[in-house]
Amino acid sequence: MTPGSKDRLRGTLDVLILKTLTWGPRHGYAIARWLEDTTGDSLTIEEGSLYPALYRMEQRAWIESEWGTSELGRQAKFYKLTPAGRKQLRLETAEWRAFVDVVSRVLQPES
């Protein structure tokens, strides 16, 4: 990895989690599995790095959590998107698009 790509990855992780939660509240394990399923092998996310990201985002009030009962009947913490989180997601999505646009315009061969 080149320097800076770690930050990009962390930002990416945040935005992916936010995206995950747009389909409704879910717990950490479910988020991990969803990320794994959608991104396949193209983006490997370390199992553990998910949680500090969740806690940080909760601190920024992008997500809120509450304790509930999971499918196994165990106590699990469910995360939910807040209005602030939704706004953040929109912002980041727009930024990503702009970024991708610029980069692709540069890389596209002149026609």
Binding site: G28, E47, L72, A76, K77
Partner: peptide
């Protein structure tokens, strides 16, 4: 407690 419970749950689910 919360952190421990949450991570425990994650491990248990993986295992499951």
């Amino acid at each position: 407690d919360a952190v421990a419970t949450e991570l425990d749950f994650h491990l248990a689910m993986l295992e499951h």
